[in-house]
Each structure stands twice: as structure tokens, then as C-alpha cells.
Amino acid sequence: MKLQLGITDTKQDDLLTLIINNVGKAMLGYLPALTSVPDELGYIVEDVAVARYYRRGSEGMKSKSIEGYSVAYDKDFDSYLHIFERYQPEESNDTPGVVAFY
């Protein structure tokens, strides 16, 4: 993440750790069957953490416009929902049902 952000010192390590941890916790909300983020999805944590780093100070905003420059923010995980679907628990057909005879 530091490489993507061009950070070469350790001054912001605590902030970066906080952002990464918060993104991981938020991501688990989309993965109810899991207790930790799988390694193969680590890139999503990194991508979203970088986006959140750049969005500091604009939390909660849907868009921002400054002197003719406009930015619209997506929800953090929207572009990854199709990936999260693969990690959803499968519905079982083993649930008891009701049979009625007339």
C-alpha cells in the first residue's frame, strides 16, 4: 500500500494500519460465513484502503466539487460484490418442510 501511495517513511504507518484494519472489518460484513479475509482477497483490502486514504476528510460524502473539479464517490465495495457472491454460504435443501394431504 505504501508503494502505491508513494510513501517512503514510517510517519503514517499507524494511520495506514488503522485504515487497513477498518477496511478488513468492513469487508467481513459482506462475507458472513468467514471470520477473516482470505489471502486471495487481500488485494481488495489494499485497493479500498488506498481509496479511503485519498478520501480522508471527505468521509460520508457522495461527491465533492472544488473550483470546477468534481469527484463522485462509489460505495467502497460495490465493484467487488460479484466476487463476494462466491463466498456466500450455499442454501441447503435439507430444511424440513410441510406436506399436506387432502
Rank of each mutant, 00 (worst) to 15 (best):
D13C: 03
G42E: 02
E59Q: 14
D14L: 04
Y73E: 03
Y102C: 12
I66F: 15
V23H: 00
G29R: 09
Y53Q: 02
V23W: 00
G60Y: 10
K25Q: 14
L18F: 09
S58D: 11
V23L: 01
G24F: 01
R52V: 08
Y69T: 15
S65A: 14
Y54R: 11
T8L: 10
R56G: 03
T8M: 06
V71N: 05
D39F: 15
V98N: 09
E91Q: 09
K62S: 13
E46N: 01
I7D: 00
Y80E: 04
N21V: 14
T35S: 15
Y102A: 14
S65Q: 13
G60P: 11
Q12I: 00
V99D: 12
M1Q: 02
R55A: 11
P32V: 13
L3D: 06
Y73T: 08
S70P: 05
L16N: 00
N93I: 08
G24D: 02
N21A: 12
Y30P: 09
I19E: 00
I7H: 00
Q12C: 03
T17Q: 03
P89S: 10
K2M: 08
Y54M: 09
L16G: 00
K62A: 11
A100F: 14
Q88K: 15
M61Q: 12
Y43D: 04
L28D: 10
M61T: 13
V48K: 00
R86C: 14
Q12E: 10
G68E: 02
M27L: 12
E91C: 06
V99C: 08
L16W: 02
P89K: 11
D78E: 11
Y73P: 05
E59S: 13
D74V: 13
G68I: 12
L3Q: 10
N22K: 06
E59L: 12
V99M: 10
Y54P: 03
K75P: 08
N93A: 12
T35Y: 14
G24Q: 05
Q88M: 14
L41R: 07
I20W: 01
